[in-house]
């Protein structure tokens, strides 16, 4: 009954608000849940480089180009940092990438939407990073130490991205008619998918139970979504963007906004692989991963050769 004892002990550590570290005992379910969630997060950072990368060469000013390049570089860095954090749980990056490419692991469905005009770069920063932050701020208090620390570090950069995205939207709403139309078009396309980023309603979210008990998840999908909505609607209104929802209103009693129902049919369709860019994103990842194989092999061969040379001369 040693294992049972450990599980009890583990749960009491969680209940006491302690961090679990890589070498500590953890139930298999806890480890599995973390691997799934953290690798999904890492993959999202990496796949997210594609829609934003789509605009670097067309960025309309040298300043905008630098901000976008730096942002994408941050996201790649988050990916690396998160992959290392998952590796503490005993899975290699190569395995994680294989899971991504075979569809066994997911990434955030938001990146299965296309970045079609320059304002999309604003909308992604403002809405997508904005939604990610709400989730990640909450995850700073998650029970797994390496994940929690990764979130603390990542959150600082994400809030920077959110502000830069909002700045693009603001500039475009103050700009010409064409620019305003681009901004509104981006808003119309990214608003609902960004609300879907928080996942299904709590009532339809099967995995929440354990994740809450283990304090991996500190707030529910609906709580986090509501925070995002309440924070974002006034920002949209401030710069003259229309919320693409005829029924949204502020409930004076609760201080929260209420919206039309989310189109969960679309959410499930995109998650299950039929969004506008699912195939493109994965194909892209696989293509360049395969094209890079000879480079990785060369680096490995060179490393072995130089190690051997050092052995001989030592």
């Amino acid at each position: 009954m040693h294992n049972e004892h450990s599980d009890t002990h583990f749960q009491s550590r969680i209940d006491n608000g302690e961090h679990i570290e890589a070498k500590d005992y953890m139930p298999e379910g806890y480890r599995k849940h973390l691997i799934r969630q953290m690798s999904q997060h890492a993959h999202s950072e990496v796949i997210g480089m594609q829609p934003e990368g789509n605009w670097i060469t067309r960025a309309p000013s040298l300043r905008a180009k630098q901000i976008l390049l730096a942002k994408i570089q941050d996201e790649g860095g988050h990916g690396l940092y998160l992959y290392s954090a998952v590796e503490t749980l005993g899975v290699s990056r190569a395995e994680l990438i294989e899971q991504l490419q075979t569809g066994k692991a997911k990434y955030s469905s938001i990146f299965n939407y296309p970045a079609l005009n320059w304002a999309d770069i604003g909308a992604i920063g403002w809405l997508v990073d904005g939604a990610a932050i709400v989730n990640q701020v909450s995850l700073q208090r998650t029970s797994y130490g390496p994940y929690s620390r990764a979130m603390v570090r990542i959150c600082k950069e994400e809030s920077f991205h959110q502000r830069q995205g909002y700045e693009i939207m603001t500039t475009m709403m103050r700009g010409t008619k064409d620019q305003q139309a681009m901004a509104q078009d981006a808003m119309n396309r990214w608003w609902w998918p960004s609300l879907m980023m928080f996942g299904p309603h709590d009532s339809d979210s099967p995995r929440s139970g354990d994740a809450v008990k283990w304090k991996i998840k500190r707030e529910t999908n609906d709580e986090l979504r509501q925070k995002f909505i309440d924070k974002t609607i006034p920002q949209a209104e401030l710069i003259g963007l229309t919320i693409p929802d005829k029924n949204f209103k502020l409930d004076e009693k609760t201080g929260h906004y209420t919206l039309s129902p989310i189109n969960w049919e679309e959410f499930h369709r995109v998650v299950s692989g039929h969004g506008p860019c699912n195939k493109q994103r994965l194909d892209h990842h696989i293509k360049y991963h395969q094209e890079g194989a000879w480079v990785r092999e060369a680096a490995e061969a060179y490393k072995l050769k130089t190690a051997k040379k050092e052995l001989v001369t030592a």
């Binding site: 990496v46 480089m49 594609q50 990368g53 670097i56 060469t57 040298l62 180009k65 630098q66 390049l69 730096a70 994408i72 570089q73 790649g76 860095g77 990916g79 690396l80 992959y83 892209h284 360049y288 094209e291 890079g292 194989a293 480079v295 990785r296």
Partner: peptide
């Protein structure tokens, strides 16, 4: 170099080349 973003042979290299691109635009 920025054309190579998300096309590196390995993530570290993606970041390294983006970094050079960033220096260049600056």
């Amino acid at each position: 170099l920025s054309e190579l973003c998300s096309r590196g042979p390995i993530l570290e290299e993606d970041l390294a080349l983006t970094n050079v691109a960033l220096d260049m635009i600056g």
